[in-house]
Amino acid sequence: MKHIWTIIDKEWAEVFQHKMVLFTLIFIPLFLVALPVLMLFLTGQSMGGEIAGDFSELPPALLSFCAAEMTPGDCMQVYLINMFMLLFMMIPVIIPVTIAAYSVVGEKTTRSLEPLLATPISTFELLAGKSLAAAIPAILAGWISFGLFLIALPLIGVSAPVMRYIISPTWLLAVLVAGPLMAIAAVNFSLFVSSRVNDPRVAEQISVLLIVPVLAALFAQLAGVIVINLLVMFSFIGGLALVDIGLIYLGVSIFQRETILTRWK
């Protein structure tokens, strides 16, 4: 455990000196909080009054989001929130990719991997340290963003039924459980890619592919192909857990000290 913390400390000390990483860590969460807050505020301002009390003017797709005590304006906001909640799930994917992709390739390019591997650290400790160093900031950024979102909503006049909808089990699971699981998947995929390529930029570009499934879910929901409910969320979490286990196993088994040291030029 001591070695793992040492690696985390080393990674953070090094990686947070990169302006790009700091920018990613601060700007993306703030942007992904500001965007939905602004959209909900504008929706509440421009549409809330016009369609209040008249459910017949709502598209059928929106009606499925309406709870009993909601106004049509609330239904509209809930519909939008459903879209934006997926953005919160993207935060733990985007942030660690930059950190983790640099992780092994960066050590290769500075030739610091050989002396590091010559210490008594085990492969598991090394990978766990690197994974956690990338995942922890991403998970925290996701949670803090969600917290800021929850604080901002009452300030822009979001109603109590809408607030209850946001802190429903589905979205709490999404942010508190699925988000970290996605971060773990993103980190391990990035480490896997990072240990196979020689350029941090290539590692980053390949790792960013992980956002594709989240975007696919976003567009599927926009098109009305899927509706994210508790059952879908549980299935998603179950699937993610399996993917994480597979990626961790793959990452450890593929991280061959010898191959990394001798094949790299």
Binding site: K10, A13, E14, Q17, T110, R111, S112, L113, E114, P115, A118
Partner: peptide, 15 residues
């Protein structure tokens, strides 16, 4: 039990 000076120092340059 061993110490190694690698051919390239390989230090963390930003630290």
């Amino acid at each position: 039990n061993v110490g190694i000076l690698t051919e390239n120092p390989g230090m963390y340059e930003r630290l």
